[in-house]
């Protein structure tokens, strides 16, 4: 008879983190609770030696290096981008990978620490949103303009915005209107 090994702490954390991220992207704008604050658990959940990762946080870089992932010095090479802040990042993020109409899955995943509930008010609509939804995010209108320029659906990048233990997902399919 097969006996099930109970999941270890890493497995439980990765499973719960993925569930939060999955529902966050499925319902753009909804706040989902992560089991652990910060970006480290998200990197642990998604990233391994098949990925090319850009990170601006030295501690996170060391953690990602241990997974065997390739560290990118240039954002344009990375399929996962971890940023500790989006402030003034527009100029760098213009180089984000957006995939192609042939291979939309080549678009990058941007994971960034962003304050929820303060800053620029936006209205979201599209798949996952029943009608529309308004919320405030610490993301500048310049960034949203840059995103609108890059995300020519189905090309684009997908955002996971983390504030402490809260995560908000904004996939490329979401229409973001700056209010």
């Amino acid at each position: 008879m097969l006996t099930v090994a109970p999941p270890d702490a890493i497995e439980m954390r990765a499973n719960a983190t993925f569930e939060a991220l999955m529902w966050a992207l499925s319902r753009p704008g909804d706040i989902r609770e992560l089991p652990e604050a910060g970006l480290a658990a998200i990197a642990e959940t998604l990233v391994d030696l098949e990925c090319t990762v850009f990170s601006d946080d030295p501690a996170l870089r060391a953690q990602i290096a241990a997974t065997g992932a390739l560290q990118a010095d240039d954002i344009s090479e990375a399929d996962h981008v971890f940023l500790s802040s989006l402030e003034g990042a527009e100029a760098r993020l213009v180089a984000l990978r957006c995939g192609s109409a042939l291979y939309p899955d080549d678009g990058a995943t941007l994971v960034a620490q962003v304050r929820h509930g303060v800053g620029q008010r936006v209205r979201l609509s599209g798949p996952g949103v029943d009608g529309f939804l308004e919320l405030s995010l610490g993301v500048s209108s310049g960034f949203w303009a840059m995103r609108a320029m890059l995300c020519a659906y189905p090309e684009g990048f997908d955002m996971l915005l983390v504030d402490g233990r809260s995560a908000i997902g904004i996939p490329r399919s979401t229409l973001v209107e700056v209010l």
Partner: peptide
């Protein structure tokens, strides 16, 4: 981890 990455992309581009 590979499935998770692909499932997130599948959600982001519905039906693709």
């Amino acid at each position: 981890r590979e499935l998770r990455r692909k499932m997130l992309k599948a959600i982001a581009v519905p039906g693709c």
